[in-house]
């Protein structure tokens, strides 16, 4: 869930030219390339999130009735940028079914977009260690982005290439990025599709532990709006048992 939020946030993070200042912001960082990504303050990306999981105690073989499935409505709102500790950081607030869940901070440096931290509803900031690269201004297929040294050994992002992806919001040309992490026996496969000028349009996470697939989390873009006029009513999560 948390990781999905990160990637959703990352979807909103992309290089953009910061021109309109929010009431919190006064920055002097190098501008993003607006042709690549340029969110506007108050812009909302709506996603449909599907989470399939099995309980940790379950082992193979898994019967279909043992797979738990939930569908959530997720909104990501771009709040604008803020100067924090000398850096211009961009804020995204995540809402699940209308409730604030978490906020994410990202940073644009050297052509890379990083998730550098998170914040709570009461604005308490926690910086990520290490910051995770999400997108690059010049995404070349076959590129491997090494993560910072603090990340688990061998961590990195693979850029597969540009391809067409169809989601509820439409069909987009997006760059596919694949990440594989292995932390103390827990393997995470992540892949997301990053569309220029929009952000992440689809993301899927698979989490394996103890030799079994445990979670499949899929997020697909369903809508884009530029003001907070989208449906914020809570939607009861759907579950299948």
């Amino acid at each position: 869930m948390k990781f999905s939020l990160i990637f959703l946030l990352l979807a909103l993070t992309s290089c953009s030219k910061k021109e309109a200042e929010s009431e919190r912001t006064a920055h002097s960082e190098p501008a993003w390339d607006a042709s690549f990504f340029s969110p506007k303050t108050g812009e909302i990306l709506s996603y449909r999130e599907t989470i399939e999981s099995i309980s940790p105690q379950k082992n193979l073989p898994i019967s279909p009735d043992q797979i738990r499935k939930r569908v959530l409505k997720r909104r990501q709102v771009y709040d604008g940028s803020e100067l924090i500790e000398g850096k211009t950081l961009h804020r995204y607030s995540i809402y699940h079914d209308g409730s604030f869940t978490e906020g994410f901070l990202f940073h644009w440096v050297n052509g890379f977009l990083y998730v550098v931290g998170s914040f709570t509803e009461d604005q308490k900031i926690t910086f990520a260690n290490p910051p995770i690269p999400i997108a690059h201004l010049n995404m070349i297929a076959g590129t491997y982005w090494h993560w910072p040294p603090q990340a688990p050994a061998g961590s990195g992002s693979r850029h597969i290439g540009l391809e067409q992806i169809t989601v509820p919001a439409g069909t987009f040309d997006a760059y596919k990025v694949s990440i594989r992490k292995n932390t103390q026996g827990k393997i995470t496969l992540r892949e997301y599709w990053f569309a220029p000028k929009i952000g992440i349009v689809k993301e899927q996470n698979r989490i394996y532990s103890s030799g079994h697939l445990r979670v499949i989390n899929t997020i697909e873009l369903s809508d884009r709006s530029t003001s907070d006029t989208s449906d914020t009513s809570e939607e009861a999560p759907s579950e299948s048992t």
Binding site: I140, A141, G142, T143, Y144, R158, H159, I160, G161, S178
Partner: peptide
Amino acid sequence: VFFSQFKSAT
């Protein structure tokens, strides 16, 4: 695809 492109990248 990645490995083949990686070759290109390398």
